[in-house]
Write a protein that binds this DNA or RNA. Structure first.
Length: 578
RNA sequence: UGGGACGUCGACAAGCGGUAAGUCAGCGGUUUUUGGUGCCGCCAAUCGCAGGUUCGAAUCCUGCCGUCCCAGCCA
C-alpha cells in the first residue's frame, strides 16, 4: 500500500500508538495470529464521506504498519440499494486519498455459493432452520416492546417460532426450494438457532437469508435469496483470512454473533475490534442522510463542494495530504466524539500555506483611479509567488492608473482600528506603489459609491518607501485593463447548527440547512495568470483565502471555489466592535 | 432500568500505581509589503461523583450518576 504522493510525516501512526495497534501487536506476540490482514468493506450504496476515510485509513494503515495486507471488499448483499456506479466512485475516492489495494479487490457477492454451502452446513448441524414467520410475527416473537425512544424498554424473553424444531431434512429441502424460487418474497427466512431468551437481542435467532426477487448489479437474477450482514460478514472475513476485522462501535453488540458464526461454521477465526466512528461539527456523516440531500436536490450532487463526501471535499479544494493529516490528529479511541470542523480547516490551511501560489484577485470590485498616473502607462512589478517557498519564484504584474480593489478595503468613514483605504489615508498596493486616498465618487442617482481616487508616490515602486515611513495597510489589486473576469463561489457551512441531527422533535433536520450557504460572485476579477487555470489547480488569493479551480471552468471564464478562508483577525475585531 | 459500551481542559486525545503530554479553538504579545504565516506566553491544585485499597490512585476495588448503541427479512 502506498500512502500517496507525499511521504508519511512524523505524525503517522506507529504500531502500538493506539488501542487497536496495541491489540494487533499483542495478537502477534501471543501467536494468536502470524501476520496481519485487514479489510475495508464498503457497501456500494452511496459515495464515501470523510467518516469512511477514518475507517479505511485505519484498515489500510494498520495493515501497512505491521507489514500486512488490506483487502478492499464490497459488502454487496442487498440488491435493492447497490449499484456499479457506487463501486466506481468508491474506488476512485480511496485511491485519491492515497491507498492502493492492487489485486486484493473482492466482492461479497462472489461468495454467494460459498455462503450457501456454509448455511447448509449449519442446517445439518442443527444450527439453522427455515422459518415461516412473517416479519411482523418475527418482531413479536423476538419479545421486545414497541419502539419508543425515550421510554424504558421492556424486554421479556423471546418466544420460539413454531417452525424452530423442523427436522434437518425438511430444513434442507425448504432452503433448497427457497433458493429455487418456489416461495414468495418474505414468505420464509433461514434463521440461526441460537437462543430466543438471550439478553442480547441480536442473538435471538437472527435471520441469515431472506427471499428477495431483485436483480443484483453483479449477480443479476441468479439468486433470489440474499445473505444477511451478520451471517455473511464473519464468513467473508474468514474466507479472506482476515485477522483483524475493524469496524465501528455500533457493531460491538454484534461481536458475540460474529464469533458464533465463526465457531459454528468452523472457519478462520477473525477478530473483530470496534472503534468510535468520526463525527464532525456542522455536518452530517451518514450515507443515508447524504443521499437525502442529493435526492431532494438541496445540493448539486454527491460532489457539491459543501458536501462532506470525498468528492465534495476534493472539488472544494481539500488535498489528500490535509485530510490524512487531520486523521492523524484526531486519534483512534472508543469514546463517542464530535470533532470540531475547525481542526479540518486548520489542516487544509496548513497544507496550502506551504504549497499554494499566491495570486491577486478581487472578489467584490471597486474602481480605484490613480489621478497622477501617466495616461496610458503600464508598468510591470515583481510579485513573490510563495513567501513560504523561495523556490516558487516571482512573476510580473501589470500596474496601471485604473485598478480594481476590494470593496471592503475602502470606507468613506472608517471604523476604529481600520487601517485600509479612507480619505486622507495611505496604504500600500501590494508589490505596487504606496498611494494616498484623495476622495471618492458617488453615483448621482443612487448616491452609491462608484469610484475611489488616489495619488501614488513614484518613489515607492514595489511597495518600499525610501524614507522608511510606516504604512500600516497593504491591499490587493488588479489592473482593470488586464484583469480577467472570473467566477468565485463562496461557501458557508451547510448547517449553521453545530449538531444538525439534534433538532427538536417534529423538526426535519433538512429544514435547518442554510439556504445561502453557496454564494456565487459573477463579477470578480483575477490577475492575468488566472486565465490559464485548470480544474484542480489551487491558489491563495492574497488576503482572502485558498481557492480551487472548479471543473465548471471554461476557456471563456475560470471558476474558483473558496476552499477555506484565511484566518481573519479583522473580522474578530469588527465583531467585538459590534 | 434487558444487554453492550464509554466518561481526562470548549473540542479531540496521551496517560497502563509514582504525583495531568500534545493538537485545534480561545486569549495576550511580537515579527510581517497578506489584519495571512512564523515566533513567544496564558489556558485541568485535577481526571463524572462518592467511598475504599495503597507510602502513593486519572490509573486497582465497590457503589452511584451521566451519555451513546441495539428490537430491518439494511449494512
Amino acid at each position: 500500500m502506498a500512502t500517496g504522493a507525499s511521504e508519511p510525516g512524523a505524525s503517522e501512526p506507529k504500531p502500538g500508538s493506539d488501542f487497536i495497534r496495541e491489540a494487533v501487536k499483542a495478537d502477534l506476540s501471543s501467536g494468536r495470529f502470524k501476520d496481519v490482514r485487514t479489510r475495508f468493506p464498503p457497501e456500494p450504496n452511496g459515495w464515501l464521506h470523510i467518516g469512511h476515510t477514518k475507517a479505511f485509513s485505519i484498515d489500510f494503515g494498520v495493515a501497512q504498519d505491521f507489514g500486512g495486507v488490506c483487502n478492499l471488499r464490497f459488502d454487496d448483499t442487498n440488491p435493492e440499494k447497490e449499484d456499479q456506479s457506487y463501486v466506481d466512485a468508491i474506488k476512485r475516492d480511496i485511491r485519491w486519498l492515497g491507498y492502493e489495494w492492487g489485486a486484493n479487490e473482492f466482492y461479497a457477492s462472489d461468495y454467494y455459493d460459498y455462503l450457501y454451502d456454509l448455511a447448509i452446513k449449519l442446517i445439518k448441524k442443527g444450527k439453522a432452520y427455515v422459518d415461516d414467520l412473517s416479519d411482523e410475527e418475527m418482531r413479536q416473537y423476538r419479545g421486545t416492546a414497541v419502539p419508543d425512544k425515550n421510554n424504558i424498554t421492556l424486554t421479556p424473553p423471546g418466544k420460539n417460532s413454531p417452525w424452530r424444531e423442523r427436522p434437518v431434512d425438511e430444513n434442507l429441502d425448504l432452503f433448497a426450494r427457497m433458493k429455487a424460487g418456489e416461495f414468495a418474497d418474505g414468505a420464509k427466512t433461514l434463521r440461526a438457532k441460537i437462543d430466543m431468551a438471550h439478553p442480547n437481542l441480536v442473538m435471538r435467532d437472527p435471520v441469515m437469508y431472506r427471499i428477495r426477487r431483485e436483480p443484483h448489479y453483479r449477480t443479476g437474477d441468479a439468486w433470489c435469496i440474499y445473505p444477511m450482514y451478520d451471517f455473511q460478514h464473519p464468513l467473508s472475513d474468514a474466507k479472506e483470512g482476515i485477522t483483524h476485522s475493524l469496524c465501528s462501535l455500533e457493531y460491538e453488540i454484534h461481536r458475540p454473533l460474529y464469533d458464533w458464526f465463526i465457531q459454528e461454521a468452523e472457519v478462520f477465526p477473525s477478530r473483530q475490534i470496534e472503534f468510535a466512528r468520526l463525527n464532525i461539527t456542522h455536518t452530517v456523516l451518514s450515507k443515508r442522510w447524504l443521499l437525502r440531500l442529493v435526492q431532494e436536490k438541496l445540493v448539486s450532487g454527491w460532489d457539491d463542494p459543501r458536501m462532506p463526501t470525498l468528492a465534495g471535499l476534493r472539488r472544494r479544494g481539500y488535498t489528500p495530504e490535509s485530510i490524512r493529516d487531520f486523521l492523524s490528529r484526531i486519534g483512534i479511541a472508543k469514546t463517542d466524539s464530535m470533532v470540531d470542523i475547525q481542526l479540518l480547516e486548520h489542516c487544509l490551511r496548513e497544507d496550502l500555506n506551504k504549497r499554494a501560489h499566491r495570486v491577486m484577485a478581487v472578489l467584490k470590485p471597486l474602481k480605484l483611479i490613480v489621478d497622477n498616473w501617466p495616461a496610458g502607462a503600464v508598468e510591470w512589478v515583481d510579485a513573490v509567488n510563495n513567501p513560504e517557498d523561495e523556490g516558487a519564484g516571482t512573476r510580473a504584474l501589470p500596474f496601471t492608473g485604473e485598478l480594481w480593489i476590494e470593496r471592503d478595503d475602502f470606507q468613506a468613514v472608517p471604523p476604529p482600528k481600520y487601517f485600509r483605504l479612507f480619505p486622507g489615508n495611505s496604504v500600500r498596493l501590494r508589490y505596487g506603489y504606496i498611494i494616498t486616498c484623495t476622495g471618492y465618487d458617488t453615483d448621482p442617482a443612487t448616491g452609491e459609491l462608484s469610484a475611489v481616487h488616489c495619488s501614488y508616490d513614484p518613489d515607492t515602486k514595489g511597495g518600499n518607501a525610501p524614507d522608511n515611513r510606516k504604512v500600516k495597510g497593504t491591499i490587493h489589486w488588479v489592473s482593470a485593463s488586464h484583469a480577467v473576469p472570473i467566477e468565485a463561489r463562496l461557501y458557508e457551512r451547510l448547517f449553521p447548527a453545530e449538531r444538525p441531527m439534534d433538532v427538536p422533535a417534529g423538526t426535519d433536520w433538512l429544514s435547518t440547512i442554510d439556504p445561502d450557504s453557496a454564494q456565487v460572485l459573477q463579477g470578480a476579477y483575477g490577475e492575468p495568470s488566472l486565465a490559464s487555470a485548470k480544474p484542480g489547480d489551487f491558489f491563495q488569493f492574497e488576503r482572502l483565502g485558498y481557492f480551487s479551480c472548479d471543473p465548471d471552468t471554461r476557456d471563456s471564464r475560470a471558476v474558483f471555489n473558496r476552499s477555506v478562508s484565511l484566518k481573519d483577525s479583522w473580522a474578530k475585531i469588527e465583531k467585538k466592535q459590534g
